[in-house]
């Protein structure tokens, strides 16, 4: 299929020359309407909180230190949630990656 590949390549080049193909846009984690982005951010925060609370609660039950680890992991979960949202808008991924 070597000739097919060559043809595809030439076709692509020709299309790019004529500007027929839209610029390949980066399909990062942030593509979609603002509502869906907002929903995604909310899910990230809530899930991190849930994991933090669950971890703290189980550790407390295991170690018998209620409610200190629960409170600690509640805070950790909130921070992790904020970090998840920050990752959603991560400048590192979108700028450092060349396709």
């Amino acid at each position: 299929m070597a000739e097919d590949d060559g043809f595809e390549q030439r076709l692509r080049q020709a299309r790019a020359r004529q500007g027929m193909d839209p610029k390949p846009r980066l399909n990062g984690p942030l593509s979609g309407s603002s509502a869906s982005v907002g929903f995604r951010a909310g899910v990230e925060v809530v899930s991190a909180l849930v994991v933090g609370i669950a971890l703290g609660w189980y550790l407390d039950r295991w170690l018998g230190t209620w409610p200190w680890l629960f409170l600690l992991f509640f805070v950790i979960g909130s921070v992790a949630g904020v970090m998840n949202v920050y990752r959603l808008f991560d400048p590192r991924r979108s700028s450092g990656k060349q396709d």
């Binding site: 899910v43 990230e44 809530v46 899930s47 991190a48 849930v50 994991v51 933090g52 971890l55 992991f73 950790i76 979960g77 992790a80 949630g81 970090m83 998840n84 990752r87």
Partner: peptide, 11 residues
């Protein structure tokens, strides 16, 4: 970071 990693399957 650990909580953030663990929250992936949840989200």
């Amino acid at each position: 970071e650990v909580v953030s990693y663990l929250s992936r399957p949840v989200s």
